[in-house]
Amino acid sequence: MFLFLAKRFGASGLIVIGITFITFLLSYFIPADPVRMLAGRSATQETVESIRHQLGLDQPLPVQYLKYLGRLVQGDLGRSYKQKTQVAELIASRMPATLKLLVGAIFFEVLFGIPAGIFAASRRGRKADNLAMIASFVGVSAPQFVVGLLLLWVFAYKMALYPLGGYGGLSHLILPAVTLGITGGGWYSRMMRSSMVDVLQQDYIRTARAKGVRESAVVLVHGLRNAVLPVIAMIGMDIGFFMSWTVVVESVYGWPGIGQLTWQSIQVIDTPVIMGVTLVAALAIVIGNFMADLIMPLIDPRLRVR
């Protein structure tokens, strides 16, 4: 078990180093000269050159990369060109909102998606299955801003059950989280259904039935424990995607998360912030996958040996 953890951890570390290299190259290939943006339009050629020298941007690429790594290790993600604050602080201030939304959204995705998928699989080919899959198809294909605005209009404007957007406690969280739950839950239900359909055809399911196991337990105990693995892997991936996937919902509800920060900084080509956010999103994917890797062996003993 320790060896397994060590291997996983080492692999994650290698991936993180790869990611830093890619984000670094990203800054290099963005078609905007950061020095020009800092110096302003009327700056003389000499001012531009001196700023370029100050920022170290006149040095060869490998040197710049190593210096960038050195700063990263100290937690320094650079300064925002526009907001004149540390990128790390900027991201840290947005993190709580994003994490809240992430937990809320995954909660609703799982709440909607997993039961629907199990239900559809256990009634495969019948009306209930078709209905559940139509519903999930609507969820998958509905644009987030449409679902978001619709929920906002019905539950916040007409019925006045929840606030009309903005950041705050649970009442503020519910509508954006449900919006993501509806649009993302469709994917979960499809994955859960196909995985469960596959598992329910296995020989050990026949054995369970031949033992006299109640049909509900056949599906929820014998089936689910085997079928849930790909869904857990998907939740792991989702943790990462949520850093960037929530842009639309955050704008609809005025939710000050990482998504909005990303969107704003892309609009003004604030390269250090873009780099920082990209790095954080990539890290989140690695962390999410790592967590899924830790949980899956608890469910499937065959994964414990390797």
Partner: peptide, 10 residues
Amino acid sequence: EPMTSLNPTF
């Protein structure tokens, strides 16, 4: 099929 007739997760 003895190889697949037992549930691998229990």
